[in-house]
Simulated assay, not measured.
Amino acid sequence: MTKPHQLTTPQGRQIAYHHTKGQGPCVVFLGGFKSDMTCTKAIYLQDWAKAQGQSFLRLDYSGHGVSSGDFLDGAIGDWFEDALAVIEAVTSGPLVLVGSSMGGWISLLVARAIPQRIVGLVGIAAAPDFTEDSMWADFMPAQRAEIMAKGQIGLPSEYADSPYIITRRLIEEGRNRLVLRAPLALNFPTRLLQGTADVDVPPAVALRLLDHATGDDIRLTLVKGADHRFSTPACLTMITEAITDVLKATR
């Protein structure tokens, strides 16, 4: 496995990334909460991009994978800054953003920050504003009191043996990054992919994003029986088909 490159962000964080050179636009994969750039979707898309001769970028946010930092110190704004720093340092020209789960939120923040460079977006079980609308909204009063008093709380996870630790900073900082409370213009081809069996980010989230965003070419595909991982061979093929569809619109 090729050793990743390292970038020091303006905030001093060391971010690991892999950049596959090729024709543009550059396809940028942004992963999910506690995921990393070795996940099934990231590697599959890198292999696909190489076969297509397509420029491709994947990265680890701080506190994720082999990047610097402790996950518990991070928040949405930090991870957005990490992604933007690597994108601006490593790529030039037009971009197609591919955001999985939390990466869908990060991709919307990137699109809002540099709209002039974005020519397409693919969301995979995109989870905008999840710290507020899923975590905080679902906390019981006792849980809210605990996280405010102790600074963190443990939540069970089906993806790990130990609980997810959710910090007060993650919740509070996330309120500065919400994208569904103000106009959200997606003035480029946007494809949203969502499994009906996703219990982590239910279809209602995708429908809310579809209803909230404005743009002339936004489509939502619901996949019956697909779960949050969206990593079966059929689902992976749907992702590359969505990217290909977006890229065709740019040529």
Rank of each mutant, 00 (worst) to 15 (best):
F33M: 10
Q143L: 09
H18Y: 04
I76T: 14
G77E: 14
P156M: 08
R219F: 07
T2D: 13
G174C: 07
T40H: 03
T40V: 15
K150G: 01
G31C: 14
K50V: 13
S55I: 06
A89R: 12
P163M: 07
A75E: 10
A204H: 10
V86M: 09
Y17Q: 11
D82N: 07
K248T: 14
R181H: 15
A213P: 00
I114Q: 02
G63H: 02
Y61L: 04
R58Y: 11
E146V: 03
H228C: 04
W136F: 13
A89L: 12
I87P: 02
S62I: 03
P141F: 03
A197Q: 05
Y17G: 06
P203A: 08
I114W: 05
V179D: 08
G22W: 07
P115D: 13
I124C: 02
S35V: 05
A75P: 00
P10M: 13
P233F: 05
A137L: 06
G24K: 14
H212I: 05
L209K: 02
T232Y: 09
I171H: 00
P163N: 07
L97Q: 07
I106P: 01
L207T: 07
F139Q: 00
D198E: 04
D73V: 04
R112G: 14
P10F: 10
T2V: 11
R117V: 01
M1E: 10
E132H: 12
A149E: 15
S101M: 05
G32F: 01
Y164I: 15
S68P: 00
T40A: 03
G225Q: 09
K34E: 14
V201S: 00
E81W: 02
E81D: 14
K34A: 13
Q54G: 11
K50P: 01
G24S: 12
P10D: 11
Q116D: 15
N187Q: 14
T196I: 06
N176C: 07
P25Y: 07
D47T: 11
D60I: 02
D227T: 13
I114E: 02
A249L: 11
K248V: 05
K3G: 00
R251F: 06
F130V: 05
Q46A: 13
S67F: 00
R181Q: 15
D133L: 10
L84G: 08
P94K: 10
V201R: 01
M148Q: 15
G93R: 07
S35K: 01
P94A: 09
I43K: 09
G103E: 10
V223L: 11
P94Q: 03
R191W: 01
E81L: 11
A206S: 15
Y17F: 15
P128N: 06
S68N: 03
W136V: 08
G77L: 06
F130T: 04
Q116R: 10
T2Y: 06
L247I: 14
P115C: 13
Q46H: 08
V179N: 09
D200S: 13
D227H: 10
W105V: 04
L59Y: 05
V205H: 04
I153C: 11
T91P: 12
A234N: 10
V96Q: 10
I165M: 12
G195R: 01
R229P: 00
A185S: 12
K3D: 14
T38F: 04
F71S: 03
T20S: 15
F188L: 08
D82V: 04
